[in-house]
């Protein structure tokens, strides 16, 4: 049985069906054709899995190129779980090293953004912050507040405007994008049931990273000179980024 299982793995991931073919009853349909059905099913499942969570990448490169890229990825990265939610965590790293995609330098970061959105979709639930309790914190103690960020939150920083590229690829933004115009710093998270991302200024990004590293407000503001305390707190409270303190 072990030999059969190993032979299946060879046939599916290494396109070598000779060994498995030896244990299949001969018929009018060749063993190779019969094995190909299983191989096609697995590759199709994994390709569709990658596709469904990388719709922006798909739209940016087109169906044929995506399929080619996904096939190469699958060959080098067999699935390691019966739970397909976990498949494709390193797809963006693969794209970064995938020579045929080198002329789209922003593509790995768009794929990374989509992976973080995928993670946010499945992350734990979390209640909303108690705004009344927050409003009752005495002014002299505000500096000491330690905010907790929603458990779905992740950060991504790119040399390219991937927020606009993402929206453009999904038809949510018209016009032309100058990919070298600016970079992007983004917070990806889920607000109630909706996966969102917030584009951040450099200071907001540093501030949130500091908060996420368990610093209090005073410490988080120390290195972010151009940020307005009140409006930053309002922004992240009202958008459901801060969930507890």
């Amino acid at each position: 049985m072990k030999n059969t299982h190993q032979a299946f793995e060879k046939a599916i991931y290494k396109s070598d069906s000779a060994l498995l073919g030896n244990n299949i009853k001969p018929s009018l349909i060749s063993s190779e054709e019969r094995i190909r059905i299983y191989k096609d099913n697995v590759i199709l499942t994994l390709t569709d899995t990658l596709k469904n969570r990388h719709m922006a990448v798909l739209n940016l490169v087109g169906e044929d190129f995506f399929k080619y890229m996904a096939n190469e990825f699958i060959k080098q990265n067999p699935s390691k779980s019966g739970n397909l939610d976990e498949y494709g965590a390193n797809f963006y790293e693969f794209i970064a090293s995938f020579q045929p995609a080198a002329n789209l330098p922003y593509l790995p970061d768009v794929a990374h953004l989509e992976w973080l959105m995928h993670l946010a979709y499945f992350a734990s639930d979390c209640g909303a912050i108690d705004k009344t309790k927050l409003s009752q914190v005495p002014p002299e103690k505000i500096d000491q507040i330690k905010f907790e960020i929603h458990p779905s939150a992740n950060f991504i920083s790119s040399k390219y405007p991937i927020d606009n590229i993402y929206n453009f690829s999904l038809g949510k933004l018209d016009g032309e994008i100058n990919i070298n115009e600016r970079g992007a710093k983004i917070l990806v998270y889920r607000y109630e049931y909706e996966v969102k991302f917030l584009s951040l200024t450099d200071d907001e990004y540093s501030f949130l990273i500091a908060i996420n590293n368990n610093n209090n407000l005073y410490q988080a503001f120390e290195n972010t000179a151009n940020i307005d305390i009140g409006s930053a707190i309002n922004k992240f409270v009202n958008n459901g980024v801060f969930v507890e303190f």
């Binding site: 049985m1 299982h5 699935s79």
Partner: peptide, 25 residues
């Protein structure tokens, strides 16, 4: 069916041989 060998998954419903060994598994 089965889909895993040595930690590698083929996310499909692969066939089990109808043997005594496989019934035990």
């Amino acid at each position: 069916s089965w889909s895993e060998i040595d930690g590698v998954y083929m996310n499909d419903l692969l066939p089990v041989p109808y043997t005594k060994e496989a019934t035990d598994v």
